[in-house]
Design a protein around this nucleic acid. Structure first.
Lengths: 295, 295
DNA sequence: CTGACTCATAGCCCAAGGGTATGACCTGTT
DNA sequence: AACAGGTCATACCCTTGGGCTATGAGTCAG
């Protein structure tokens, strides 16, 4: 009992809200009306909530249905990011546009840009390679990718570059952590003296952090940004993470940012391409999309 | 072919990354090791990506696996919001703590607060009622709920209140909309003269908007914030939405905010409770959580 | 009163995904 | 050298969730 709702049912719920009838939603999903009816019933049974108001003139969402539908849509949006990203990741060989990106860009920005690009250039198949900033520069230099995105503070030689987004590291803690009630900002020394949840050595985030505060004391060393994020939310301790990774959590209170004095934790995310050459075709469009969405 | 990945497989992927072996992940999910193995294979086949590096000493994520795992975690987090919210919605009758909230709070903030509250008060069952701000005030006055959250500009009589979060409406367009390339802010008059994608009459967002700019010209009238958001992303036209609803889209470039001159689109989200009485028990804790996560 | 729409129920069927049993592989220990 | 203990994969069976078609109940408009 209490199984997780499956994604297609959530999509069905959203569609019912938009189209005003179970039957129309069924047609949109390319399933039969009875299937949709049964699916919706099981979704309601699983959540133990009445979600749709059925009537002979169609169906509409109940109040609960509207709220759940909104949450559902966010789930579907994140899934969309995953699928767009996965498709780009898989390309590599036969892609029509190959790009490389460092972790932060690949995780948080690239899927959106690619989705936007593809909305204009229909059916375009993009290949996305994810590595560290140094390798991205190499790939661009050897023309194995048409465009690269890096997060290093300096522009590697032999490349043109354009700033496409701003990023900043933030000290974050769980809401019940004592630091969330501090009245004055942390000092750099306090931060350096406190054991932190950190990424592994060699990650861009860890590099930026150590460049700013010197050596850090690892409390827990984890292999991905969101693993760190989860650890912090579960009360493991403070961490320093890209605001891109935690903005939603800051907004809805799952995490709290702690201001810090005397540290510059900003960094630019840049697009790079072979110097001299002028960008053309899809690469130029993607760059334009990226630049435009940064402001 | 190309079926959507199911949620449990995503959870499995995340767990493999955290625990370092398929078997341990299987135990964590309370399924057998062969099931996990098969599941992971089908996930890889569906995404057509190699996600885990299998070896006799355990399994680790490939580069692609780490990236996908991060996206997966975000999907799971949103699903968590949905489930927490659904549980709160369903309470109502036998809940140990009953609260009421207007749409904006219920959608974007309440699930996080409730999850946080329950992390401290284990097993607490919270009932959440979602209506408009006026009804919330009534419910609080009649003590049908212990605490309410409203988004109206003034505090209804007979109630104590405390500001728990700031909100602001923002003009947003799709990235390829001409307004995204404007160099100077919109004027209030321009905004009033442009047909907008709006919520239905009576919604808090619509009210706030009309109070600020006078009458608006509906281009499309939709029943939920995220429906409006989707319409905008699909190029229907500009809309004015709570930043809480669109911050993630602004960050990853799916939407672009257009600055406006001469309009105050800010609003406060407030907690309300019967005046005179002092808040106690879980209600007081929830208020503290809400206040704390707002800063 | 009939046609057109809504949704629900019944019965059938397939395939996805669960479990157990087993085997291949590697590593460290005896 | 052989074995114990860990990894993961394969083979097999079985249950069930969810798909389909066919049908019926209800409502509304012409």
């Amino acid at each position: 009992m209490s199984q997780p709702p499956d994604v297609e049912s959530l999509r069905l719920l959203v569609l019912v809200g938009e189209l005003g009838s179970l039957g129309r939603a069924a047609r949109a999903l390319d399933i039969s009306q009875p299937s949709a009816s049964k699916r919706m019933s099981t979704l309601e049974r699983r959540l133990r909530l009445e979600l749709v108001e059925r009537g002979p003139g169609g169906s509409s969402l109940t109040t609960a249905g509207r709220v759940v539908s909104d949450w559902a849509r966010r789930v579907l949006d994140e899934l969309d990011v995953l699928l767009t990203g996965a498709e780009a990741l898989r390309g590599e060989r036969d892609a029509e546009l190959r790009v490389a990106a460092s972790m932060t860009v690949a995780e948080h920005l690239a899927p959106g840009w690619i989705a936007e690009l593809r909305r204009n250039a229909d059916g375009l198949y993009v290949g996305l390679q994810v590595t560290n900033s140094g390798t991205v520069a190499d790939l661009v230099r050897r023309s194995e990718v048409a465009l690269g995105f890096i997060e290093s503070p300096s522009v590697p030689p032999g490349l043109n570059s354009r700033r496409v987004a701003a990023d900043r590291l933030a000290v974050v803690v769980a809401p019940h952590h004592p630091w969330s009630r501090r009245r004055r900002p942390l000092t750099a020394a306090e931060l350096a003296a406190t054991p932190l949840v950190v990424r592994e050595l060699g990650s861009g985030t860890r590099d930026t952090l150590e460049r700013a505060v010197g050596a850090v004391q690892p409390l827990l060393e984890l292999g991905s940004t969101t693993a760190v994020r989860s650890a912090v939310m579960n009360g493991a301790g403070p961490a320093v993470l890209s605001v891109l990774a935690v903005q939603a959590d800051l907004a809805d209170g799952r995490l709290v940012e702690v201001p810090v004095d005397g540290l510059d934790l900003r960094r630019s995310l840049r697009a790079v391409w072979p110097s001299g050459r002028k960008l053309g075709g899809h690469a130029a469009t993607l760059l334009a999309v990226a630049v435009r969405s940064s402001q």
